[in-house]
């Protein structure tokens, strides 16, 4: 009775659908548990007025809804300071990572002796665990024992060592350089340019040699071949990298926290969220900061999609 009866109730298409749902159920479950529920919790915390100790007793019915967390964040100078730092960090790392990766990929395009070794070496920063990378940088940049400061004071004749990771503004003549911020940006470029390099190299290997040959026969010089043949082919991959890279940089926490703990004008939004949570034990405020980050990224993502669609249509 069972099998035949069930078979008669569900059409073949419905059964296929059911199978589909069953097979994808684990992923829905995982997404719900590790993304949707925590995200909803963040939204609730951001709009609630509560003390940390009250979380245990919180239910949806008893929450004291309030915009206080956002009002406090948006009216505080540190929020806008952190936002400015984050935008500067994200923009410059994105430019550096993509620019650096593309340049190196183009430079290593034609085979040369030792190409494999050089390529592999270039990937080391990307493969290195972030804690190892930051430890190396911290050691090299240390004002007392660091290699760079020893070289600077003994060979280049600097008067005093430079505290690279804690100096907010370094004066070169009359120009102030945001020293610590520059260092964390350079670190990210050093660490992540290989990622761009990998993607761009893969794409370059698919650029048909005939196209360039044909252009050369038609009298195009090397620069023209690069700007008119090769670079346009990289547009799609670079646009995708641009989006990914900006989002990742905007949210970056690990490198910055491990290098400076947010000192010297490197307190980006992610570090600020962490400090609101641990130093001030203020979950509501941390959630509000986090949500603001999400909104900003969402706006950026939508803007990116619109620009991209318009260009593709052209």
């Amino acid at each position: 009775m069972t099998r035949a009866a069930r078979g008669s109730r569900l059409s073949r298409g419905q059964r296929a659908n059911l199978h589909g749902y069953l097979l994808s159920a684990p992923s829905y479950l995982a997404v719900t548990l590790v993304i949707l529920i925590p995200f909803c919790a963040v939204v609730i915390f951001a709009f609630a007025d509560f003390r940390l100790i009250d979380i245990q007793q919180m239910t949806l019915g008893t929450i004291d809804w309030s915009l206080a967390n956002f009002a406090k964040a948006l009216s505080s100078g540190t929020f806008w300071g952190a936002l400015g730092t984050t935008v500067a960090y994200a923009v410059f790392t994105t430019i550096g990572v993509i620019g650096g990766g593309v340049v190196v990929a183009l430079a290593m395009r034609r085979p040369f002796p030792g190409q494999t070794v050089v390529r592999a070496l270039f990937l080391v920063p990307y493969v290195l665990p972030v804690i190892a990378g930051t430890t190396i940088w911290r050691t090299m940049l240390n004002p007392q024992y660091g290699f760079l400061n020893a070289f600077g004071t003994q060979v280049l004749g600097w008067e005093t060592p430079i505290a690279f990771l804690t100096t907010k503004t370094f004066q070169v003549g009359s120009v102030g350089i945001p020293m610590a911020l520059t260092v964390v940006i350079l670190f990210e470029i050093w660490k992540s340019a290989p990622f761009t390099f990998l993607f761009v190299t893969a794409r370059l290997q698919n650029v048909p040699a005939e196209l360039e040959d044909a252009a050369a026969i038609d009298g195009a010089n090397a620069r023209q071949r690069l700007t008119h043949i090769v670079l346009p082919q990289l547009r799609t991959v670079v646009m995708v990298l641009l989006l990914l890279r900006f989002i990742w940089s905007f949210q970056n926490f690990n490198d910055i926290y491990l290098l400076t703990q947010g000192a010297g004008g490197t307190e980006v939004m992610a570090v600020k969220v962490f400090k609101e949570l641990t130093v001030r034990a203020d979950v509501g405020s941390a959630a509000a900061y986090g949500l603001c980050m999400t909104v900003i990224l969402l706006v950026f993502g939508i803007g990116w999609a619109l620009v991209n669609r318009r260009k593709e249509a052209m």
Partner: peptide, 21 residues
């Protein structure tokens, strides 16, 4: 899916509240 999420969330919060007690 939306309603399922809503249900799960309510249940989770209720559970958390209970286990808290």
């Amino acid at each position: 899916i939306t309603s399922a999420v809503g249900l799960t969330l309510t249940a989770a919060l209720a559970l958390a509240a209970c286990s808290g007690g």
